[in-house]
Design a protein around this nucleic acid. Structure first.
Length: 357
DNA sequence: GGGCCCGCAGGG
DNA sequence: CCCTGCGGGCCC
């Protein structure tokens, strides 16, 4: 085989280190934690380049059962904040921004509606009226968002944000006083390892988003150009999570290179805790340091869907595939009502500092 | 494919 | 008001 690039060599080295680290924490053998067959996500309609993700009109069916599980794209429990609804929805404008939101009030408004798939985010991009719908729940709480089942899928980050699962539209981490509320796995760092029930994650910062004086940019992401530190609010929050062990909501995005990543859009994969936080050399030629974290999925949650690899690649990952062979067992499909009363749940919901109602 | 330029949410 | 941040559309 051809010589590997320096980048590739370092990437594999880092991955190996991360893998070893997870194993050292007892998180290397996911099957031991699983012990159950996982649903398979079939590849979306053949080769049709899913790049062009547009919101096909999946009509309102879905009914109010807000949360079906979603093992296959065809019938994923899509949630999207309704846009064009009547005037009951508050308009998010600069005028409303910053105001205190009465989530409960808004919640009652929507309870009687069924969800329709649309892409308010797309419309928002085109400037114009920006008829975005107000968020209906508080994202600043630890644990599950009531009514949002594990496996819930959104086409875009903004839709997920509106459902309060991961408030940030671009950022991968949302921070709270006792640790992070949620993180997004979106493939931003190529040397992270995703074993599904455990994964390594990289912090934020160390990038120059503004360009130079002469050539000012206004980027949202950029190459690593300095060390990350735990002084960064996001990184600090995740480090705190490792101490408080507060549960963190995790969403996986289509850009993540992992058999656990959805083919399209973003999916809520439940609650995880940070088992360890440390610093390491990042995957960049200058060797800038990055903050690293080891996540572990809390037990008692529905199994994660995995991609159907039978028809191809998906994740180069050198051979071996340390992970399983996916015993695709019979259709044990059953969902088990993810969100209800598992011990995971109460642990999750209590202790939040939102408790004021 | 890459470059650019935007909007949004959140924090200071 | 400013800045950040694992988006996303668009144009080349």
């Amino acid at each position: 085989m051809p010589v590997l690039s320096k980048y590739e060599l370092e990437r594999q080295a880092n991955i190996e280190r991360n893998r070893m680290l997870l194993q050292g924490l007892g998180l290397g053998d996911t099957s031991a934690i699983l012990g159950v067959s996982k649903p398979i996500i079939p590849k979306p309609s053949a080769k049709t380049k899913t790049k062009k993700r547009k919101s096909e009109a999946v009509d309102s069916e879905e009914q109010g059962s807000s949360g079906e599980k979603s093992s296959e794209p065809a019938k994923k429990s899509v949630r999207s904040t309704d846009d064009a609804v009547e005037s009951t929805s508050l308009r998010r404008s600069s005028r409303n921004a910053g105001k205190k939101v009465d989530y409960l009030k808004v919640e009652s408004d929507r309870s009687s509606r069924s969800y329709t798939v649309s892409t308010p985010a797309k419309r928002a991009m085109q400037s114009e009226p920006s008829v975005t719908t107000m968020r209906t729940q508080n994202p600043k709480q630890y644990g599950h968002i009531p009514g949002i089942a594990i496996g819930t899928w959104w086409e875009m980050r903004m839709d997920c944000s509106k459902d309060a699962v991961h408030a940030a539209v671009v950022a991968g981490i949302t921070a709270g006083p006792q640790g992070a509320y949620s993180v997004a796995l979106s493939g931003g760092y190529d040397d992270d390892v995703d074993l599904g029930y455990a994964f390594t994650y990289t912090g934020s910062g160390g990038r120059d988003l503004k360009g130079t004086k002469q050539n000012p940019k206004n980027l949202r992401t950029a190459p690593q150009s300095s060390d990350q530190t735990f002084d960064n609010p996001f990184n600090r929050a995740l480090k705190m999570s490792s101490e408080t062990r507060k549960p963190i909501r995790v969403i996986r995005g289509f850009k993540l290179k992992s058999i656990y990543a959805p083919y399209e859009g973003y999916r809520y994969d439940g609650l995880y805790v940070v088992e360890k936080a440390w610093m390491a050399k990042g995957l960049n030629d200058k060797g800038y340091l990055v903050c690293k974290y080891a996540f572990k999925r809390l037990p008692g949650q529905p199994p994660l869907p995995v991609r159907d690899e039978s028809s191809g690649e998906v994740n180069d990952e050198d051979d071996e595939d340390a992970e399983e062979d996916t015993t695709v067992g019979d259709g044990n499909e059953d969902e088990t009502e993810a969100t209800s009363t598992t011990e995971v749940d109460d642990d999750a919901n209590e202790g939040g500092e939102d408790k004021d109602a």
